[in-house]
Amino acid sequence: MVTGKGGTGKTTAAGALAVALATGGQRVLLTEVEGRQQIAQLFDTPPLPYAERKVASAPGGGEVFALAIDAEEALLEYLEMFYNLRRAGRALGKIGAIDFATTIAPGVRDVLLTGKVKEAVNRPDATRPGGRAYDAVVLDAPPTGRIARFLNVTAEVAGLAKMGPIRAQADSVMAVMRSGQTAVHLVTLLEEMPVQETVDGVADLRAAGLQVGGVIVNMIRTPLLADGDLERAGAGRLDVEELAAGVKVAGIAPRTALIDALVAEAAQHARRVALETTERGEVEALGRPVYELPLVADGVDVGVVYRFAELLRTQRMVG
C-alpha cells in the first residue's frame, strides 16, 4: 500500500515501487482506486478499463500490470462471482441500489475496493511458480489523512453490519490487510504539513493494527552549497564579492542586479535545505526505514519512474 498527502508524488512512488518489485522477472499488479486514471498518465498509456493491462516491462523480464478499480464494477463482479447475479445487479442500478452501495452506504465502497485488491493478492494460478497470479500487488491508496480508515474496513462497517455478507467480506479483507503480507508505505515531502500528516498517519495505522512499512521522502533538494556557505546564504551573509569575482571569472558580467538575484536564489535554496533537515529529523524519529527520491526539475515521465525504481532497489526497499 502506498499512501501520501496530495501533491507528494504518491502515484509516482507507487509506480516506481511496482517496477522495482517486478525487476528480475516478477509479475506485479499496480492498482488505483480513486477513479483518476493516474497510472495511465504516469505510464503514458490510454485510460485503463476495468481489466488488468500490462503497462510496463521491468529489467530481467519483469512485468507490471495495472488496474483502475471501480467500486461499481467490483460490486457487479462480486455479485456474479458469489451469487451469479450479474444481470440482476445491472437492474439494481436502475433503482439506485448500486449507487447506494458504492457511494452512500458508509464503508461499503471501501470494502469493495479493498476486496478487489485482496482477490488479486490471493488469485491462484497453477502455471506460475508460487501458484499465484501475481508476485506482488501495489495499491496507489487514498491519501494519508484517510488511509487508516480506508484500510480498517471492519471498523468502518461495524456500525453498519454486525453480521452478514458485508461483515464477512470486511473481516476477510482485514485479515489480509493486517497480515505480514501487507505493509503501508507513506510518501512525504520534507515540508511541515506533509510530515505532520505522515506522523499522524503512522499513529492512525498503528492504532488500527496495520503494519507501517517505510517512509518514502520525495522531491529532495540536493544541497548544492558547501556547509558553511549554506549557513551564510540562509542568514543573508554570503560573500557577495567572492561570488561576483567567481561569476566574472566564469565569463558572465557580474552586474549588481544579477548578483543580488543570485544571492536571493541561494538564500531560498539554503532555507529550503534547512527546512528539509529539520523535517528529516521528524521523519527519522518515526523509527521506520526512510527512502529518498530527488526532485526532478523537468517533471516526472516514464523514464523517471524507472530511475526511481532503481533508486528504491539500491536503497534496499526491495530485493
Partner: peptide, 17 residues
Amino acid sequence: EHPLAAAVLRIHAERVR
C-alpha cells in the same frame, strides 16, 4: 576555482529549469 560561484550558478540553473 570559486566553488561558491560554481554552486550558486548550479542553484540558478536548477531554479530556471
